[in-house]
């Protein structure tokens, strides 16, 4: 406070400078307030903050698992008429795997976990097999590309290994879904490039693809980048 008093004393007799100083103080306070708000996972004007560092990437994975679990739960609750036999059995499995991923990530994140998200599936006709499978394909390919792109953003070897354990299961899912849509398209050139590599995407691109289906507003701005 001594320093402050000295600064104002020096500015005395110059109202403009004094006002500038007060503006500066006010601005500093508001920056501190914004910074403090950003460290919380609460909703703010920017949306639900996924967080930073490895926790941010885990929350990002948790958001993807929440989306897929909610989608497959709806598919099983309101099945299209031909969802029977092996197809019903396998898609029920996929639903179970996504719930396992969701519940595991929630438990691993503990108090750092984002809240349950709200989704918007109003554009999907769950009675239409082709519509459902094509959405499943988009979600599956996107999840694979998301994990492939996120591995390099993680600093913990344990979390990287977990991401690896999940991504190959996501790849199995989408290969099966693709085979249901068009048999033999499990790894076609829309998924795998001329080097034999699958897709990889950064979080902002993944979230842009999934945005139409996520009602909750997400704030990925503190996620790590390359």
């Amino acid at each position: 406070m001594k320093v402050l008093r000295k600064r104002t004393t020096l500015s005395y007799g110059s109202p403009i400078k004094r006002r500038d100083f007060l503006t500066y103080v006010a601005a500093s306070v508001s920056i501190v307030t914004v910074a403090a708000a950003c460290t919380k996972n609460d909703s703010s004007n920017n949306g639900i903050d996924l967080g930073s560092g490895d926790i941010g990437i885990l929350n990002y994975s948790y958001a993807l698992a929440q989306l897929e679990a909610a989608f497959y739960t709806q598919v099983i609750n309101t099945p299209y008429s031909s969802l029977t036999g092996d197809e019903l059995s396998f898609i029920t499995d996929i639903k179970g795997h996504e719930i396992a991923h969701r519940e595991f990530l929630k438990a691993a994140l503990s108090t750092s976990a984002i809240p349950p998200l709200e989704f918007d599936f109003t554009s999907i006709n769950f009675a239409n097999r082709s519509n459902v499978l094509n959405i499943a394909k988009t979600f599956g390919d996107t999840a694979v590309s998301a994990y492939n792109g996120a591995g390099q953003l993680l600093t913990s070897a344990d979390y990287l290994l977990i991401a690896g354990k999940i991504v190959s299961v996501e790849a199995r899912h989408v290969a099966y879904i693709r085979d249901l849509i068009s048999y033999g398209s499990f790894a076609d050139s829309t998924a795998v490039d001329s080097n034999g590599l699958d897709m990889q995407q950064k979080p902002t691109d993944v979230l842009a693809t999934l945005d139409p289906y996520i009602k909750s507003k997400l704030d990925p701005s503190h996620l790590p980048t390359l």
């Binding site: 994990y147 991504v167 190959s168 790849a171 699958d198 897709m199």
Partner: peptide, 8 residues
């Protein structure tokens, strides 16, 4: 990782 998921 991109090869790994193709094997998947």
């Amino acid at each position: 990782l991109q090869i790994h998921s193709v094997e998947g």
